[in-house]
Design a protein around this nucleic acid. Sequence first.
DNA 1: CATGAATGAGCTTTCATTCAT
DNA 2: AATGAATGAAAGCTCATTCAT
Lengths: 197, 197, 197, 197
Amino acid sequence: MKQNRHTRQKILEASVEVFYERGFLGAKVDDISNKAGISHGTFYIYFKNKREVLWDLVEQTFNILFEITEAPWEKGSFYNSLEESLRGFFYVFEKHVKVIRCWKEVSLTDPAFMELWDKLTRKITSRIQQNIEHLMKTSLCRDCDPVIVAQALSGMVEHFAYVVFIKGDDYAYSLEEVVKTLADLWYRAIFGHVPHF
Amino acid sequence: MKQNRHTRQKILEASVEVFYERGFLGAKVDDISNKAGISHGTFYIYFKNKREVLWDLVEQTFNILFEITEAPWEKGSFYNSLEESLRGFFYVFEKHVKVIRCWKEVSLTDPAFMELWDKLTRKITSRIQQNIEHLMKTSLCRDCDPVIVAQALSGMVEHFAYVVFIKGDDYAYSLEEVVKTLADLWYRAIFGHVPHF
Amino acid sequence: MKQNRHTRQKILEASVEVFYERGFLGAKVDDISNKAGISHGTFYIYFKNKREVLWDLVEQTFNILFEITEAPWEKGSFYNSLEESLRGFFYVFEKHVKVIRCWKEVSLTDPAFMELWDKLTRKITSRIQQNIEHLMKTSLCRDCDPVIVAQALSGMVEHFAYVVFIKGDDYAYSLEEVVKTLADLWYRAIFGHVPHF
Amino acid sequence: MKQNRHTRQKILEASVEVFYERGFLGAKVDDISNKAGISHGTFYIYFKNKREVLWDLVEQTFNILFEITEAPWEKGSFYNSLEESLRGFFYVFEKHVKVIRCWKEVSLTDPAFMELWDKLTRKITSRIQQNIEHLMKTSLCRDCDPVIVAQALSGMVEHFAYVVFIKGDDYAYSLEEVVKTLADLWYRAIFGHVPHF
DNA sequence: CATGAATGAGCTTTCATTCAT
DNA sequence: AATGAATGAAAGCTCATTCAT
């Protein structure tokens, strides 16, 4: 039973690497079992096929990401909360970037994965949107379509995470500086003036 | 000869659709030739394999996108230029979104496609970056790392284009409103105050 | 009509070269029509397929080789006749070596070609055999199985022709010396003593 | 593991037959796997393609043939040694004739196979050549170009082996008589007189 | 006659999946 | 549970041959 769980874990870990190196469609079950140090046939005891493996990985990632979006917004200033949120997002994104990349790859053709991604995205953007709507009500924020703004700002961050963690761009970004700059851009984009700390 | 060009064109057009529906790796040459209304063998008269077809499509798209980034920045106000640029970008992106999606899919595993995408991205962000650096010199813009800002803002737009044109989100965005909102966000993010028209 | 014959000839000539370069099975009709400077379809006006082309070439070669084996044995000494025969054989073999090589290649799997080659071989060896039998009757030749001897000696010559003309061995053979040496070997093998000129 | 070796062996054995029946280029992997009693896919577990199968077979044959040319020349009389050598050669040749035929077929178009054949041929002829040169020094042999003679005599034997084992000529040769006759021809060709036993 | 685009049968090769051990 | 040899469906690709112009 312990062995069981251990082997399953080995397959999951190996899959992350193989999916990342070759892409989901390019990954062969053989690559995975080799990397996991198990025989080809053993793979099929634990998973029906490689899609099930990815589904498992993606569900784990989904749950973690979904959870952090529910973390209560920090009490302090909006700017500090924003910065903290971004820092947290980048931290989790980095840890799961290999799975996320694969998730998005498969979403292009597999509706179930797409659905899950959308669910997460909707959660995130709707939260930002609510925040903006709240700020608009209290007149702190410029008037604009909160849906579009939420989409745009979350997109900006997600896109940046991709660039930083996946492409490993020539320009070596200091993560702290990125967080600070993105928070600045976000803040100003909404409030339309420079924050006074 | 005329027939020639016609068949080649039919293959290219069919490929765009098949690649979009099934993804590049999921697309079979048979699907393409069926959709193009030609026999299996004919495909191979015109292209070595499906990668060559995508390369052809991507090169066309690259050239168009590369060209529009060289269009001189409009004389008028910065805000108007920005809006016009975004409008132009969305227009072209929409026309080529199917190829672009595939391009990015393949870039995950094929360095040549990645290289071409990077070349485009670098061109776009470096242009934005120069613009920001110029604005910073004339003190119109807040002090910040121009590289990160360029990356973030172009990412915001690119990401939005994806959402609008590929996912066809439930929320039916008015393109004009999107352009206006993104221009606003962009403008405020840089200048840190509301534009006076 | 003249055009006709001319085109046919071009195909035959091109085929010889292509068959030689790529082997019969490796030769594509496209290679032949390209080398002949005609269109792909034109080939099929003149020949049913590439086998027919080779058959035509082989028949020509067969007729020439068959004919020279009927040339009357020279009046003079046996040794001189032998030398002259070998010289003649090498001369013709060189001119037709490309076709012959292909002929033998195809004979491995195509009975008709094999049959034709055998017919030639039987003719040649039976002639040698008769010669030997005649010499044996007149007691000039050592006693031995004329069939085996004929086979062996003709084989020796044919094999050498292959080496000289096809492989282009490192060792640059002087054709005259080869003829002389082979005639010597042949002569001594039969008569069992050195010839007195 | 035992199964493993067994299947590989079955493929090799089936290949010999199929290559012989259809020629190398005419042989289909399907023919081989059918004859071996395995599925199509299994073939590719053991060999990359049919060329690799032939290469394996040819290497085995090469090693055996190469080895026997290194067998020390028998102590006794030259004639007896010669006879024994020819007998040995015919014996091995017969066992491997199917592979040899294929080897020569492929050599026409595949340089690697040609190279290996040449290596063998050079070894054989150079050994004969040395033998002749030695005999010439001790004045036992007539003066002649040892290279040409070696080439010619080895060619005579090789050619005969082909005729006897591949074509299965109408004339049923007694192998013993062939060996004796070829030894006679060889001996007299070199020494120029009849041997006294 | 000449053309060359189009065809499709036929072959090669890969790899997810099964199953006897 | 674990193994890994065997399977065969599903692509990929080639090229001899046809046929409308």
